[in-house]
């Protein structure tokens, strides 16, 4: 029996709620709670045949290692030095501190959490439904985004298949020089897939010139482009820790998109035969995610230190917000209703 999918809008809301903590801070309690909850959802919804624990753990270890190495070698700040590299060495020279090591670990955990959210979305999201839910004018953008989103998982899957095939032929990856028999078929396969995809899109009229009566008005096209740009800039501002900048960009971007899509007429039209059902499970996922988002925004407004942790220059115990941690437990709801 195959699990019924949940409405993509509910999944997107859940992903937004799970993405906020690793984006806005490095509090170890918050990061751990978020990662554990997302890990539970991923474990419940994963396809056991393709999504193995081994790959995920290796990925987590890699991110932790990169975070620790980068931060420890470049941030020579803190009251707990444990070694010292010669000062003459550019960039990495200076004291190595436990403070930087801890912050590197937390950064690795945050990146791993974000990646886990993306992996879970990739395993659960019904892309076809999502494309149909978007306004007609954004269809081309949505298709492009879906193709881009699927690039990494497809490449990883292809790499695994090629490696298995080469191992069956006796090939072993012992040094970088042995990577040729893996990378060349991967590159050739990627080119072939992209060509197939391009042909399929063209056969469906993707990107074709519109009839004069269906052409998009100039101001509406400009508003759509500006809205998308502003929304992207706002998301970047959120990731960079500038809330005013982020919410301003997102607000204006959504407003521009709304204004562009308000008026009927113009642009390509698609026929919709069925609409996705917003069932009880979608309500549960969206409701719990909405509660988590609300708590996150409220705590960000009144107690932003609950998300933050800065081990420089002294390592002190991080702040704890029990309501926030309890709310993050609600991110497990999609795992419970599978």
């Amino acid at each position: 029996m195959i699990a019924r999918p949940i409405d993509p809008r509910a999944w997107l809301l859940w992903a937004a709620a799970a993405t906020v903590p690793p984006l806005v801070g490095r509090n170890p309690f918050v990061l751990l709670a978020t990662t554990l909850a997302v890990l539970g959802v991923w474990a419940a919804w994963r396809d056991a045949a393709t999504d193995g624990w081994g790959r995920l753990l290796r990925l987590g270890a890699l991110f932790a290692l990169v975070g620790v190495l980068f931060n420890t070698l470049t941030a020579h700040v803190g009251d707990r030095p444990f070694a010292r590299l010669p000062d003459a060495w550019p960039l990495v020279g200076g004291p190595l501190t436990v403070n930087a090591l801890v912050y590197g670990l937390l950064s690795g955990l945050a990146v791993f959490g974000l990646l886990l959210v993306g992996t879970t979305l990739g395993a659960t999201l019904d892309w076809a439904t999502l494309l149909r839910l978007l306004p007609d004018r954004l269809h081309a953008v949505a298709v492009t985004g879906a193709v881009a989103w699927a690039l990494v998982p497809q490449t990883l899957r292809a790499f695994g298949e090629i490696r298995e095939a080469q191992e069956a032929r006796g090939h072993r990856l012992r040094s970088p020089a042995d990577a040729g028999p893996l990378l060349v078929p991967l590159l050739a396969g990627s080119l072939e897939r992209s060509q197939t995809l391009a042909e399929a899109l063209e056969a469906r009229g993707f990107g074709a010139a519109l009839a004069p009566q269906a052409a998009l008005g100039r101001w509406r096209g400009a508003a759509t482009a500006a809205g998308l740009t502003l929304a992207t800039v706002g998301a970047y501002g959120l990731a960079m820790g500038s809330p005013a900048f982020a919410f301003g960009g997102l607000g204006f971007g959504v407003g521009a998109l709304w204004a562009a899509g308000r008026e009927r007429g113009g642009g390509p039209r698609r026929t919709c035969y069925r609409e996705p059902a917003w069932d009880r499970r979608a309500w549960l996922v969206a409701g719990s995610a909405g509660v988590v988002l609300g708590v996150e925004v409220a705590i960000l407004a009144v107690q932003p230190a609950a998300f933050a942790y800065d081990p420089y220059p002294s390592m002190l115990p991080p702040a704890v917000s029990l309501p926030l941690l309890a709310a993050l437990g609600l991110l497990l709801v999609p795992a419970a209703i599978r």
């Binding site: 195959i2 554990l36 991923w42 419940a44 941690l325 437990g329």
Partner: peptide, 28 residues
Amino acid sequence: ILVAIGGGALVLGRRGRDGPGSATQTTS
């Protein structure tokens, strides 16, 4: 709370894997 979330993730993750569905439907 962390132990509770971790335990819940473990139990629900196992139940999801061994439960009624073993794969997610992605076609419409």
